[in-house]
Design a protein around this nucleic acid. Structure first.
Lengths: 231, 231, 231, 231
DNA sequence: GGATAACCGAGACGGTACGTCTTGTCTTAGG
DNA sequence: CCTAAGACAAGACGTACCGTCTCGGTTATCC
């Protein structure tokens, strides 16, 4: 009868924060005691999860399969992650923000969106890139899996928003603010709404497959968003 | 031993048809008196599925539970629907287009969107209504469930697009076209992109919970979409 | 919901007894209404049942499979037979008593066991023949199937005893009686027990596979039974 | 809710061993103390199986019911036994050879058949006892169930022969040999055939219900077997 | 010769059980 | 005390059959 759910947000642990319980031994020999979590196992799990979700899809992804593929006991997964979605989420991090920074939804660097001074051109460039990524099965599968989990798990959604979506949006808003300051965008618009206006339709179309995701569509979207629907 | 997946697409009536088809929604074309499918069972299954998905969520929804709740053998479900998602889809039809026509995503009648002559006011009214619906747990739960299934099942996505999304979009485009002809919208804009521009951001925000869904947001969205981002 | 069991002994139907339900009309015109049972279906069912039990064994034999193989509706089976065992039983009759009389357990003709005047030789001959039959997969499978059913169904057991076992035993006793009258057997022995003594061990060994069924064993059995265990 | 029997029961076998082996009955070969099989579950399953087969009969006995009654997951049964018959077989062992030795088919002790010096009297006594047991519904049901399974499963039959039938037969032969040495039986008879001659007819009659199982019949059988059919 | 009634094939129905799979917890050994 | 391994209770999966219950569609007597 599946006892207590024991919810936890996507956990971190590992050396970087010393979050865990493991101070224990105390007889500090000069070397930090750190946690006893096995980084090798963690990596193996994350990588197995990421591979598997691409191979069999999210629905057929099982914790058992991840454990088996990673050569790890199931408990080692349950010990550190509260849900399949949380594992997946962590598995995606190296992909999206990886060792070399954020990488998804259309920018090339850990840093800012491109700024050539021409906001329309820049947005088109970024959206085209996003379109390409969303059309790439290598990203499409896992991303759908993550999105699916987010759909059902508000807590995970919050983490996602905080950890991935908000930083991304900040980058977008930074570029839009620059355009605004350059007089290319109206001074009174809300940048949040503006970013939504540009990326929202793309995301919807991708998720629901309500139409083809093409460069032409990206261009059209940018154009229409910039100029508005009025004459 | 659950062997091969045995995929099949299209057809109509008769057992094991494509995903969203089993119902026929009463559009009796005078067709052959085929099939002795029990309408009572069909209704019971659909209604049980709809209720349950609201109670326990999609992930915990089981065919067994639907069958039990509906007082029906499991086989009667498997006989007529290929997947949980297909059942759910049919279960939603009565809600969204029901006996008295489409009902979701912001219009009051089987018919058109409101047209007072003021496109901005009308769109705001419609989007506010949509916002209310998406905030209503009565719709939020099942809709997320369906969306989740659509996310992973391109075939179901196609059915959804065809049966629900496209008709809805036609209504939206009809209203926009009227506005266009009244000179309230630019003559050269693509109505598809226009509709996406207005509803896409709302949908994204709802799905990913990337921000609060309020009337204010609806108003802002409409305003920004109409006037564009440029000065 | 498995309603009422509605027990019936192995049915016969067809003109001879008018066993079925068909009396109905009651306006007896003097002429018997008879049944309208399809003899073709009956034969097809019996033959399908016999074939199938040999192919898949008794445990995996299903009424549905019989009906499908026979090209017959399930109801046609349920209408005329109360159980799988009953079908099987009828299916065996043509084999064992067939159009040309009883045939099992070691006699060559509808009639009597061989009588050359030498009871020991005759019994050995008959038992060797029985051994051959029991070793023949063509008989072994179906016979085990029938026996299994008899094991669990006292009513079927009674029918079996009455219809197959008793006639057979009469033949055996007839031969033994002849030997008794010829002075080859003691005058005071009970012929029933005598028949059991000879055939019982063979049957047990066959059913439980407690040892090899060979001609040598048959010979030994006859010899020991005739001479007894005492010095 | 089998809480905390954290006993360390003597280890047993490994998963999915041969049919009748799960018990091991302590014939430890010095092998590694492998497997952490739960002895409590094993006992609960065996006892539930034995009870249920007596209550509902073999045909209606289901693994699910056994699991439910035993408070055990189905997999725990499938993990350790290959078939319903194998479970039943193990369930019978405690009855027939139990903690205090073999007990079935007519002897009172783990040890030998009674030996008063009078072989006829002793055999009659033993057979009468067997008759009583076979007439006792407490044994009749389960035994028929086991026999039925043996009928169809040669492998189980082999196990049965090896584990139950052969030891029993040895006891019988031991008593017969004693009689032979005492000059009460002929020196040249085969003891195997002799044992078959005495017990075989009884077994046949019981299985096929071809006649009443009475003390008189037991006596008659012994008498006829001893003295033979000849004058 | 038309009515009528039982039989027939077909197969949907509410169910039970199957044997497999996965979940999340718990136990055992080893480092 | 973490780990790999894996047994365990629980229960859903999708399939196979059960025995019952309509459906139309033949027959095949009866009036």
């Amino acid at each position: 009868m599946t006892k207590a759910p024991r919810k936890r947000a996507a956990p971190r642990a590992t050396p970087r924060s010393g979050s865990g319980t493991g101070s224990g031994t105390g007889t500090s020999t000069g070397t930090s005691p750190r946690t006893r979590r096995s980084e090798a196992s963690r990596q193996a799990i994350l990588s197995a999860a990421f591979d598997l979700v691409g191979e069999v899809g999210y629905a057929k992804l099982s914790i058992e399969a991840i454990a088996a593929r990673a050569g790890v006991g199931k408990q080692t997964i349950y010990r550190w992650w509260p849900s399949k979605g949380a594992v997946l989420f962590d598995a995606f991090l190296p992909v999206t923000e990886g060792p070399d920074g954020p990488r998804t939804e259309g920018d090339a660097a850990p840093g800012a969106l491109p700024d050539t001074g021409d906001i329309e051109a820049d947005l088109k460039r970024v959206l085209r890139k996003t379109v390409d990524e969303l059309n790439d099965p290598r990203y499409d599968g896992p991303m759908r899996a993550l999105t699916s989990e987010i759909l059902h798990d508000p807590e995970l959604a919050a983490t996602y928003t905080e950890r991935l979506d908000r930083p991304m949006k900040e980058l977008k808003k930074t570029r839009l603010r620059a355009a605004q300051e350059a007089g290319q965008l109206a001074a009174d618009i809300d940048l949040d709404a503006a970013a939504d206006l540009v990326w929202g339709p793309l995301l919807s179309r991708w998720l629901l497959r309500s139409g083809p995701l093409t460069h032409a569509y990206a261009d059209q979207l940018v154009h229409t968003a910039l100029n508005g629907l009025r004459p």
